[in-house]
Design a protein around this nucleic acid. Sequence first.
DNA 1: TCGAACATGTAAAAGGTTACATGATTAC
DNA 2: GTAATCATGTAACCTTTTACATGTTCGA
Lengths: 183, 183
Amino acid sequence: MNVKTLCLGALSLGEHTGYDIKKLFESTFSHFYNASFGSIYPALKDLEKAGLVRCRVEPGQGHPDRKLFSITPKGHEALVEELRHEPPAEHCRSGFLALMFFAHLLPTDRLRQVLDEVEARYGEELAYLESIRHCPENPAGANFTIEHGIAVYRAALAQIRDQRDALLAHHRDIPEAFGEVLT
Amino acid sequence: MNVKTLCLGALSLGEHTGYDIKKLFESTFSHFYNASFGSIYPALKDLEKAGLVRCRVEPGQGHPDRKLFSITPKGHEALVEELRHEPPAEHCRSGFLALMFFAHLLPTDRLRQVLDEVEARYGEELAYLESIRHCPENPAGANFTIEHGIAVYRAALAQIRDQRDALLAHHRDIPEAFGEVLT
DNA sequence: TCGAACATGTAAAAGGTTACATGATTAC
DNA sequence: GTAATCATGTAACCTTTTACATGTTCGA
C-alpha cells in the first residue's frame, strides 16, 4: 500500500483537491496512514499522467487555482485491481515503544513526560474516532477501520494507565556519568 | 527513532553480531519496529566509524567471520542522549486497514482472505508475545512493550472476530465491469 | 497584527527495502 | 536432496519527508 493507491482510493469517494486529500489523511486515515504534501502532489501528477485521474481547474480567489481531481473508469479498474492484489502488510514503527524498551536508560522525568505525551495523543485520537463513529454515510469498511482504531487505542490507553504508576515507582534515574566501566 | 539508534540500543544489552540484531528485530522488537540486513549492516559500520561501537572478529567455521560488536562508553553516552531527545513519534501504516477502508471494492472471497490472513498473523504475534512475557531477566521497559503488544493484539483480534461475520454477511461483490458510468 | 487555514508545487535528502553475491552446516 | 540456519555485505531503487517558495483571506 502506498500514497498513490490511497490517493486513487480517496478520489473513488468523489472529486477532491490535493489539499482535501491531505485533510483526509489527517482525519479519517490518520490512525492507519500518513502522507505529506510532498508525496500527495507528485502522486496526483503521476496518476493524471497515467490516465487514472483527470483534473478540472477552478480559478482561485486569492490562492492558487484549485485543481479538482476525479477518478476515471480506467482509474477505478486500476484501483480495484490493486486492492485485489495488495497484501495486507503493516509497517509500524513505534518510537514510543522503542523508547519504553530502554526505559532504564531514561531519567524519570523524561519517562513520565513520554508517558504523558503518548497518553494525551492516544486520548485525542480516540476521542476523534469516537466522534465520527456510527456515521450512516460511511461505507461499512470505513466503519470497520474506525471501530478497529477505537478498540486498539482503548486497549493501549488502558495498558498505559494500568502500568505507568508501577513503572515510575520502580524506576531509578541512571547515574550522570559512566566513566570507562564498559571498556 | 531509526535503525542506527536501535542497533546501538541492542548493543547496550550485550555483545552481538549483525545477524543477532536482525533476530532481535524479528523477535522482541517485531511488534514495534522492523529492519532488514540492508539497513543493519550499514548502521553498524557507521556506528563503528563514529566510535560508538567496536568490533571483535571471531573466525568463522564454514561461514564468514563473525563480527561481534559491543558498545563503547562514548556509544552509551550517545544512546542515552538520543533517547533523552527522541520524540515518541509513530509511523504506522497499515495496509490491512487501508484495504478494509475500501472493502466495498473487494470481491467477497478476497475480503475473507484478508481477514483470515490478518487474524492468523495477529494470533501468531500474540502467542509469541504471551510466550515471552513475565520473563524475570527482562528490564521493566521491555516487559512494558510486551504487555502493550499483548493488549493491542488482543483488542485487535477481538474487534476483527466481533465484526467479521456481519461485515461478510452484508458484503456484495462488485460488478465485474464498470463501463463508462463514472465518465 | 498575528496566526491559521486555504492552496500548489519542487528539490534535496533521508531512510530503508529488495535483490544480489557467496557458501558451509544441519535437520528433515 | 532440499530447505533452513548461520553469516556478511553491496548497490540500485523506492518511497517519503523536510524544507523551501508564494500569497490571500479570515478570525481572534
